[in-house]
Structures are given as C-alpha cells and as structure tokens.
Nucleic acid binder design. Structure first.
Lengths: 191, 191
DNA sequence: CTCCATTGCCTAGCAATGCTAGAAACTGGA
DNA sequence: TCCAGTTTCTAGCATTGCTAGGCAATGGAG
C-alpha cells in the first residue's frame, strides 16, 4: 500500500530515469557514443554518479534503455508509414521509413543493433516493441510472399534493409548509387 | 642504400608487427575484442607497451591491421569458392562462402565492419583487397543482372549478406529458419 | 517544536585502460 | 675499449566504469 508521498517519489524517480535516458541519447547523437560517459551524464542531470547507478546496473543498461526507446519509436514510425497503404505501396513506404529512421538517428540505431548487450529477442519477455516492429514489417511482406514462407521473407528483407543501413552509414557503398539501391531491393522483394 | 644489417632489423621488425596483429586477432577470437588490451598484447609478445606504439599509432591502427588481413583472406575465400563455377552455382557458392566466413570468424568480421575506424574505402588508396573483394562478388552478380545495373545489384546483394551475417550473429533471427534464409535470398537475387 | 530513524545523496577513491616522457640498456662500428 | 645511436623499459598521467562509507535531508512520533 503506497502512501501518496511514496507515489510522488516514485514519480520523480521515473522522471529522472527518463531524463538520464534522454540525455544519453542526445549526447550520443550529437557527439557520438564515445562521448557518453557516466561523469558527463551525471554533470548533465546535475546529480552525482552513484545516482545513475541507483537507476541502472551499469552503463550497458543505459544503452539498452536508449535502444528500447528506439524500438518503440521505430514501431510508431513504421505504423504511421503503413497506415492507409497496402500491397506494393505499403512495402515501399515501410522500407523507406526504415532506412530514413536509421539514417536520421544513427546513434540511436547503433544502440539498437550494435551496442545493445543482448536485449532478449526471441524470448517470451522480448520487450513488446521488438515483436511489434517485426509484426509491422511482416504484414507488409505478407502481400508479396507468393508461396514463400512469410517469416523467412520478412527476415531476409529486414536483413537487407539492415545491411543497407549499416553499410551506408559506414560509407562502404558508392554515394552516386544511393538512390538506386532501395528501388532495386524493392524490385527483388516483390518478386 | 640499406646495409644488410638494417635489412635484417627491418625483417625482424616486420615479423614482430605481424606477430602483434596475429596475437590481437587470436585473442579477439577467443575472448572477444574487450579482452584485447595493449597490456595483454604486450605481455603476449613479451615486449613492453611502448614497443607496440612504435608499430602502430594507436589501438585503432591495430584493429585496422586485423581488419585488413581479414579482407585479404575474404578475397581468397571468395575466389576459391568461385573458381570452376559460373552462373547460378557461382553465386550460390560465393554467398555461402561469405556467410560461412562471417560465421566462423566473428571477431574478425567485427573488426572489418564495425570496429575498423574508417579504412579508406571508396578512395584511390583503398587497400586493394577491398576493391578485389567487391570485384569478386561483382563477377558473380553480373550473370544475373538481367538489365539491372550490376553495381547496384552487387551492393544490394552484398548488403543483404552483410545484414544476414550481423543479425544472425546478434541472434535476432529465428534459429529454426536459419537454413531457409539463404536459399530464399538467392532466389530473390537471381530474379 | 524536537528528536530520530530512514532514506537518499555525495565525496573520495579503486582498478583498469590508452597512451607517453624520460631514463636505461643494448648494438655495432671506430 | 669506448662511443654514438638506436631500441627498449620503467614509471607515470589522465580518463574510464564502478563502489564504499559517511553525510544530510526528509518526514513521522512524542
């Protein structure tokens, strides 16, 4: 039975936790993840370092929290790109939305896919946004399965998008071909 | 005009440099890149830390050297997978070889694609193995271009393989669908 | 209003890391 | 045997993630 005063404290605590995550994300996006140190975060939120450790077990947990936020946002981005469309148009819109997301928030995407330390993925307690994101993609691919297994197609399509996103960011692909890659991929995917 | 004795010294130096790279790679593969510290490398090669810095500007340069070695090996792997085959068989073999390479030497692959600090890629002095690797893939894709731009197709195909490799390693794909993904991708790629 | 227990917070520090300055030791020729 | 030049090592710095132990604020009881 929580007293009102305890409730207020928990509220403030949750708020501060959110501030930590937001600060980490912002700093990562502007100066890169290397610049995200516990000391700088502590300075930013105007608390001492141990306070951070009362919210998160270690630095990795902070990154995980940012990643999780990223997945949640990716879901909403994909959803809004998909609503009102279907078939080919839906797939095109989702793919473009996915690449734009990765392109516009590279540090966030990095947290989600190369920094996050083993977020539970295939497990029951996979944070729901992960599964939801997958489902969102799946509905777009379903229309183009054409006899093929929808899940396999989704995984392969997602992998292609992910590879495109990461190799583009690492500048390993020719800039002058940039606008031709996604159309070609979409052509492949719809058979 | 180098005296013989200088030559010997340079030879020994090159040998030691190679030892550093090999040690870093081995340690990374067995214990992960986090375990690769300058101190441990120095201990392993039985020299003090500053000696390492007489070979490499910083730790990143060591990783880059490992990555470069990886690209050279990837080229030979792809070549040997491709020789004697053509058309569909060649593409299949190359793709499988690529994924096997990434799967069997995850730390090496990580050095090549997520750790390497800006190896010059699109530039004139892109270490030749990078361009050679791309060319090797390109020849395999050329047979299936079918009107499409070969370079775009190669980049997209490569991205898909890369995405598959990284997402698989991060355990974000369903293990039970593992054997179905590559065949489906190959089906897409050949049109 | 005063006291006190509980909770929350901060100061100070540890161990490990990448990297470097300066001294010491070795090398090979005179 | 000695010396100049190079190579190597010892010792240390600054920064990092993380933690122990003490201090202070908070809010209820008398």
């Amino acid at each position: 039975m929580p007293t009102p005063i305890q409730q207020r404290r928990e509220r403030e605590r949750a708020q501060r936790q959110q501030l930590i995550v937001a600060t980490a994300r912002e700093l990562a996006e502007t100066e890169g993840w290397d610049a995200v140190t516990i000391r700088r975060l502590a300075d930013s939120i105007e608390y001492s370092q141990p306070v951070l450790y009362s919210h998160f077990a270690d630095k990795g947990a902070i990154i995980d929290a940012v990643a999780l936020q990223g997945f949640a946002e990716l879901v909403t981005v994909l959803r809004s790109a998909g609503t009102g469309r279907s078939g080919r148009k839906k797939l095109d819109a989702l793919a473009k939305a996915y690449l734009d997301f990765a392109d516009e928030q590279p540090a966030l995407y990095e947290a989600m896919f190369t920094l996050a330390s083993d977020l539970p993925f295939g497990t029951p307690e996979a944070p729901s946004s992960l599964r939801e994101g997958y489902e969102e993609l799946r509905t777009a691919f379903a229309a183009h399965a054409d006899g093929r297994d929808v899940d396999v197609l989704t995984e392969v399509g997602w992998s292609a998008l992910h590879g495109l996103a990461t190799l583009t960011r690492a500048r390993r692909l020719r800039p002058d071909l940039r606008d031709q890659r996604l159309p070609l991929l979409l052509g492949l995917l719809r058979g």
